[in-house]
């Protein structure tokens, strides 16, 4: 256990140097999401202010709530996408030779990918997270059943995000064309996860795809807990699904790490697909 914790400390330093050393974080984690949020808001404004729109989606009756809905989407998307970015960077370690140096060590591979994902999350997302909380408090758009729901929302965002990050790390670590996966998980991710539209507006098949991504359910819980005043009882189904999905992702991560390293040991190539 202590060895695993030391892996977390090590990856924490590495991610801190990689992310914090550059100004990129201010742009990718604050400026771009905020500008994109504004663009999304104005883009859907004509339809949300169409006659009769409030009957189909009551939330649009108040522009503040619409903005909060979209902001929650932007927040969760920023968290999850930061892990796609971090996994993309992780895949470069294969090329630079440091992945081999990592595999030489006795450190647990699972601890490595988990540590890498969670440190990326902490390093990347604190800025937008703080901004989001400040904005929510300033605009009074938080609507909580009880203060404990803040913790539930935070856990429902962070735990699946870390599982997602570990899964992506193991996936991209062994993939030939990580740039392609990166592209695939950028725009399609917000589309299927209901980041910019309520889920009811999506066709069934898109919703079905969206369920495979933890962002979708994470976001449902986040919006329910922070904006709609729901309590754990009302969100129990979503929370259970989210826990199950996180467990599945971690299971897949373990399998990928095992199969990937075995493949590398057999063929001498760290590219599995």
């Amino acid at each position: 256990m202590s060895a695993a914790l030391r892996v977390f400390a090590a990856e924490g330093l590495k991610q801190h140097r990689r992310i914090f050393g550059s100004k990129l974080v201010v742009f990718s984690m604050l400026l771009w999401p905020v500008l994109t949020l504004a663009t999304t808001y104005y883009t859907v404004l004509p339809v949300t202010s169409a006659p009769g729109a409030a009957q189909r989606w009551p939330l649009v009756a108040e522009p503040g709530r619409l903005l909060a809905f979209l902001a929650a989407g932007a927040l969760a998307y920023t968290f999850f996408f930061s892990l796609v970015q971090s996994a993309w960077h992780f895949s470069f370690e294969r090329v630079s030779g440091t992945l081999e140096a990592m595999f030489l060590t006795p450190a647990s591979r699972m601890a490595l990918v988990l540590a890498n994902g969670s440190s990326a999350l902490v390093q990347n997302a604190w800025l937008f997270g703080c901004f989001g909380i400040a904005a929510a408090l300033a605009t009074g758009s938080l609507h909580l059943a009880h203060p404990g729901m803040l913790a539930v929302a935070a856990l429902a965002l962070l735990v699946p995000a870390v599982a997602w990050g570990a899964f992506l790390n193991s996936l991209l670590m062994f993939s030939r064309d990580s740039a392609f996966l990166y592209t695939l998980l950028d725009d399609p991710l917000w589309f299927v996860a209901g980041v910019r539209l309520p889920l009811f507006a999506l066709p069934v098949w898109v919703k079905a795809i969206g369920l495979a991504f933890p962002l979708t359910t994470s976001l449902t819980v986040l919006r329910g807990a922070l904006l709609d005043g729901r309590d754990t009882g009302e969100l129990a189904g979503h929370l259970a699904f989210l826990a199950g999905l996180s467990a599945v992702l971690l299971g897949l991560t373990a399998v990928l790490l095992r199969v990937g390293e075995r493949h590398a040991q057999r063929t001498g190539s760290l590219q599995l697909f």
């Binding site: 883009t43 859907v44 404004l45 004509p46 339809v47 949300t48 202010s49 169409a50 006659p51 009769g52 729109a53 189909r56 989606w57 649009v60 589309f191 910019r196 539209l197 309520p198 009811f200 507006a201 999506l202 066709p203």
Partner: peptide
């Protein structure tokens, strides 16, 4: 996104 929003939220109309 515009298509889905236009049909399922705007009911095929744009306002504002």
């Amino acid at each position: 996104l515009a298509y889905l929003a236009y049909h399922s939220i705007g009911g095929g109309r744009a306002g504002g």
